[in-house]
Design a protein around this nucleic acid. Structure first.
Lengths: 118, 118
DNA sequence: ACCGTTCGCTATATTTATTGTAGTATACAG
DNA sequence: CTGTATACTACAATAAATATAGCGAACGGT
């Protein structure tokens, strides 16, 4: 009985403390890596361009993923008052600093998954 | 009518060719990054140890994720005939080469998400 | 004033993934 | 034959992603 209490306290005290967990919550979600990749190097991309380039993403999913990335501070959303009016997504500084991650992923992929795409 | 056919062929011909897509299929799944992290540096870890360290993963999910990682050639599974008998998971060479990716993720996380864990 | 076009989504229903909880299977030791 | 330890699997329930369709705003043309 007392043992049970001790165990509960212990499990609260020494949390896993996994250093990748917070980042995994973000980049471990479907489409996140691809979205960031397409926005690298200061590009500004529209919603429908992302849809086309990601090839098969659902607009609902893309919308909620972009919203999440905006809330996390990784993506910036700008309304462009042109004809026709549209929206442009680009990376914040925080998002740009994901480039080394992406580059390592691509490097690993080229070595171990080949140059195949899709 | 003929236009429709042309468009279909075109969409098959120039696939998105996103260099991160194949890797994203693997590391963009929940728990993958954390699993690889806990196996880094040649460690051999048991199923239940992973369960504990990942904190809250469902055994079904963990099982299927490990199976996927084994099929992809990233994780090795070994049955140990000891008392009691158990199973040890470790990284293959392909898996070990994910270390630079993980390190970049941690670096980015420390800068932009703080040192918080969980 | 109305119609059509483009763009950026949202809505709804369906499928897939993950979870909570419990239980099974195997190998022993006593 | 019971109990313990490990590694899962089973099943029902919730959450996430998908396919498909459609809405709403801002024009431009007629």
């Amino acid at each position: 009985m007392e043992l049970a209490v001790d165990l509960r306290e212990a499990s609260l005290a020494n949390l896993p403390l996994c250093p990748v967990a917070p980042a995994a919550r973000i980049i471990g979600q479907k489409w996140t890596l691809q979205i960031v990749y397409y926005l690298l190097d200061g590009k500004s991309v529209r919603f429908c361009e992302l849809q086309d380039e990601l090839g098969g993403v659902n607009p609902s999913t893309l919308s909620s993923r972009l919203k999440m990335l905006e809330e996390e501070g990784i993506v910036r959303r700008r309304q462009i008052s042109a004809i026709p009016p549209h929206v442009e997504y680009s990376l914040t500084e925080m998002g740009c600093h994901l480039k080394p991650v992406i580059l390592e992923v691509i490097r690993w992929s080229n070595v171990w998954l080949g140059d195949r795409c899709e």
